[in-house]
Amino acid sequence: MSLNDYLLVSGLLFAIGFTGVLVRRNLIVIYMCLELMLNAANLALVSFSRFRVAPDGMPDYHGQILVFFIITVAAAEVAVGLAIIVALYRARQTTQVTEINRMQY
């Protein structure tokens, strides 16, 4: 398979995730969609790593290291984000973004 196929899948996945972020109203679902977007980036990175072969014939592992870090950061982010959602739910009794609109003029 060619790089472009993987990049297309990655891009579509990102687009689907972004759509979710844009249209869904439930904060937790929005969070899941964010995870989808992060994984789209991961896919692109891994396919570039496979595409760019080092002189010794092996894939470029630097890209994979970055994926590794992204997974770690995403885990931390989910933990903190969900904690914030819990705190928010305690304060406002809702997880609907349309109702969390205090920051306006």
């Binding site: 972004f18 973004v97 349309t98 969390i100 609109n101 920051m103 306006q104 003029y105």
Partner: peptide
């Protein structure tokens, strides 16, 4: 200030 709707998703649309 009309862009400051307070709606996070509206911001995300501009961002996109």
């Amino acid at each position: 200030r009309f862009f400051q709707s307070g709606n996070v998703q509206a911001y995300a649309i501009f961002f996109g």
